[in-house]
Nucleic acid binder design. Sequence first.
DNA 1: AACCGCATGTAACTCGTTACATGATTCC
DNA 2: GGAATCATGTAACGAGTTACATGCGGTT
Lengths: 188, 188
Amino acid sequence: MLGMLRDAASGYDLRRAFNGGPRQFWVAELSQIYPTLQRMERVGWLTSRREPSARGPARRVYRRTAAGARELHAWLRSQPDIGPERLAYIGQIAFMGELRDLRSTLRFLTLLRDYFEALTGTLGFAGAAPGQTPERTDRLDDDAFHELLCVRVGARSLQGKIAACDEAISLVRAQLSRKRHQKEATRD
Amino acid sequence: MLGMLRDAASGYDLRRAFNGGPRQFWVAELSQIYPTLQRMERVGWLTSRREPSARGPARRVYRRTAAGARELHAWLRSQPDIGPERLAYIGQIAFMGELRDLRSTLRFLTLLRDYFEALTGTLGFAGAAPGQTPERTDRLDDDAFHELLCVRVGARSLQGKIAACDEAISLVRAQLSRKRHQKEATRD
DNA sequence: AACCGCATGTAACTCGTTACATGATTCC
DNA sequence: GGAATCATGTAACGAGTTACATGCGGTT
């Protein structure tokens, strides 16, 4: 949120920002955004002031203080922030053998693939188009260049996941047809 | 944890299981494992009994009930469980333009790449080796086959992330050398 | 005697979610 | 008049973390 507050914005604005682009990398509800903004104001990273809205009730608009900028830049200069990943669907795959039903596994992997495939469509942080080949990056300023970088990393990672599903799907198909052959051989 | 409890195990055993293999897909501390086992016993998915330990104090060994198995299998048969992903490092990349220091970005991406690279080494659920090409999967039973599937999906996804870092790194390098040239041109 | 690995737990706290409460303005 | 959008919040709960408390048994 500190990063998003390069320009002044309200909690409601931030939610819109979370819903377009970063949605895939970070989700946040209003009920989390508002208290967090209040806390960041208390510790001095933000200031706020009420402003009349173009339409609707008055807004509380936040902006970053010098201390907030220091905090953000310290985070950016520190190590990659790699929290504990929790991929429940990997666990599902691991234990799915218990179902003794490869067709169920196949359906599962196809759904997973479709989900990732659908995500690639929604990719696109701010102005950077997802499929766009990054030629002429020299025209971009630092901010736009890093946004593009972010989108490209996201897109490539997603491609990797789709490839992972594809490989798994073909492994399952192979296993399925092998089992069919074994069955026929037994019958003969 | 229900999935892991195919054979009876204690909380301490489960922690060991979390630390070897699934560590990359799911992390859990003892202080989360113990209360969760207690809760699952309360709702009837597990039963427990104390057993003397080969060395050390008495253990509480849990096993899955029929209700627990039903619950697990319902989860396995349901949709892929895709919780909200929260990748803070993607956010760092997105806002790193503010530092106005491409060299810092390059260092960051290299660290990220190294981290993913290191993870590939630790991959390997139970008996399935990571680099192992999945030929002769016909010899595997359903459980072993799905464990292999799980490892392959993890490995491929990781490869995608490494490729994503590599692409970003080369983009930054290109941008850096372009900036150098511009500087020289300005000086001339 | 000190330490390590085995073993089980509790307490306090943070983070995040769902659900609820409220009210202004605009468009149909 | 009613619905949708704009706008800000609180309450209750669940999930997860760090830190703490306790104690057995074997090795150095």
